[in-house]
Simulated assay, not measured.
Amino acid sequence: MKAIGFKRSLPITEEESFIEFETDTPRPSGKDILVKVQAVSVNPVDFKIRQTAAKDAALDTPKIIGWDAVGTVEAVGGDTSLFEVGDSVYYAGDLTRSGSNAEYQLVDERIVGRKPKNLNISQSAGIPLTALTAYESLFDRIKVDPVKDKGKTVLVLAGAGGVGSIATQLAKKLGNLTVIATASRESSSEWCKQMGADFVVNHHNLKEELEKIGHSEVDYILDFVDLEGYWELMAEIIKPQGHIVSITESSTPLNLNSLKAKSVTFSWEFMYTRSMFGTDDITRQHEILNHVADLLDEGVLKPTTTKIIRGFSAENLREAHRLQESGKSIGKTVVLF
């Protein structure tokens, strides 16, 4: 089968930052299904791993990355029960295994969902990783109750990004929350409004912007961009007994004492935890993806794909990574095979 990977961590402008090669088509066993991939989308985790995985030394065999895919089930392992050959599926995969930038991929069926029926392949490919991240942040970490917490405020940092785009919708439509999204450019601000944000504030002067809209403090904060950079401000604007969730990292230790007086809860969200550690509730991701598919089919949620690049090639993957690395992409970029 054809696959695209890299042996060295090179700038995306370098021709060998991605290389095409042939490798054996894998065979499923156990709870794995074999998926014929039809489209993938690109997330920050893709370029971060590409930039670091082969930084010190070249790899003997190319590393295949990619953690968002849509495709059809070609074969199933002996212990599977959730899918059959021919089913259309979507998933974000497992960070510890070979990725989706290949014609075929093995994936544990327990982290796979049915493809939304009313979305096309490109629209569906932009959903899994971001939807799982946003859903887990809101309903597994904060444990938002749409009745008890109705009207509470959530600040979405990086509202126009892939995760922010779906988090805004889930918080508004499923969580009944008042959503405040951050953006600075006119195009990204307009996108946040289209996703359902009640307020859009400029992150360059966030504290003043929040005061201006009458929300100097917020109940919840979803950090999808820069934990270290926003830490002191988040501690200041979070309400007593509030909850902060972050998917980003800090290069220095965080001062958790700044949250003590307010009894604020801080949670990490890492979408790959369940698959990496084979947690007892690993099938939760299958359930979340199916629920999200239902919400998309019903029109409750909107797809977030904004850019489609046609053709499975190293050149097109480089282009998708260039867009993601620019930090200016809105919504999701998809490569259609």
Rank of each mutant, 00 (worst) to 15 (best):
M1A: 15
I4G: 05
F6S: 01
K7P: 01
E14F: 10
E20N: 00
E20I: 00
E20L: 02
F21S: 00
F21P: 04
E22L: 02
R27V: 15
S29V: 15
G30H: 09
G30S: 07
K31M: 06
I49K: 07
R50K: 13
Q51M: 11
T52K: 14
K55W: 07
A57S: 14
A58H: 11
I65N: 03
D68P: 00
V70Q: 06
G71W: 10
G71A: 06
E74H: 08
E74Y: 13
A75G: 09
D79R: 13
D79E: 14
F83Q: 06
S88P: 06
S88N: 15
T96P: 00
R97W: 09
S98P: 08
N101L: 14
D108N: 08
E109Q: 10
R110P: 05
I111V: 15
T130Y: 11
L132F: 12
T133H: 09
Y135H: 11
Y135E: 04
F139K: 05
V144E: 11
K152F: 12
T153R: 13
L155S: 06
V156W: 09
L157C: 01
G159V: 12
G162R: 05
G162L: 02
V163W: 07
I166N: 08
I166R: 05
Q169W: 03
L170Q: 04
L170H: 09
K172R: 02
K173E: 15
K173V: 08
N176E: 13
T178G: 02
V179H: 02
I180Y: 08
A183K: 15
S184R: 15
E186F: 03
K193L: 13
F199P: 01
V200S: 06
L206G: 05
K207T: 07
E208L: 10
I213F: 06
E217F: 12
V218G: 03
E228I: 11
L233N: 08
A235K: 15
I237Y: 04
P240G: 03
Q241W: 15
S251F: 15
P253A: 02
N257W: 13
S258A: 13
K260T: 15
A261T: 14
K262I: 04
K262V: 03
S263H: 12
F266H: 09
S267K: 13
M271F: 11
Y272K: 08
S275N: 02
D281P: 00
E287L: 08
L289P: 00
N290I: 01
H291T: 12
V292P: 00
D294I: 07
L295I: 07
P303A: 03
T305N: 11
I308A: 06
I309P: 01
S313G: 01
E315Q: 09
H321Y: 11
I330D: 10
I330L: 05
F337T: 03
F337S: 09
